[in-house]
Amino acid sequence: MRLGLKKDEVRLDAYNPEWRNEFHRVKNAIIENTNIVDHRIEPIGSTAIIGMDSKPIIDILVGVDDISNFDERIVSGLKNIGFLRLKVQRPGEIVFARFTDETYTVKTHFIHLAEYQKELWNNLIYFRDYLNSNEDARLEYLKVKKAYLKMSSTGINDYTDHKEDFVKSIFELGKM
Rank of each mutant, 00 (worst) to 15 (best):
G174L: 05
K175E: 10
N35A: 14
F110H: 12
E115T: 08
K107R: 15
L3E: 05
E172T: 12
G77C: 08
G155M: 01
W19V: 07
L78C: 05
L173G: 10
K118S: 12
Y148I: 00
E135D: 15
N16L: 05
R20I: 13
I44C: 08
E9N: 08
V64C: 07
A48L: 01
F83Y: 13
R2Q: 13
F70Y: 15
A14I: 05
N33E: 07
D71G: 09
E42A: 06
N80Y: 00
V167H: 09
I36R: 00
T154A: 11
H162I: 07
M52D: 04
N80K: 15
D71N: 14
P56V: 07
R85E: 05
L84M: 12
V62Q: 10
V64R: 05
N21M: 09
N157S: 07
K107V: 15
L78V: 07
Q89E: 12
F83P: 02
E172C: 06
L124D: 07
S54M: 03
G45P: 02
R98W: 07
V75A: 11
V75R: 10
L124R: 03
F110C: 06
K146F: 03
P91H: 13
H109V: 11
I44F: 04
N21D: 12
E72V: 11
L173R: 14
G77D: 01
S169A: 12
D165G: 00
L124E: 14
T47P: 00
T154E: 13
N69Q: 12
H39N: 13
L86K: 13
S152I: 01
R85K: 14
R85Y: 01
A147E: 14
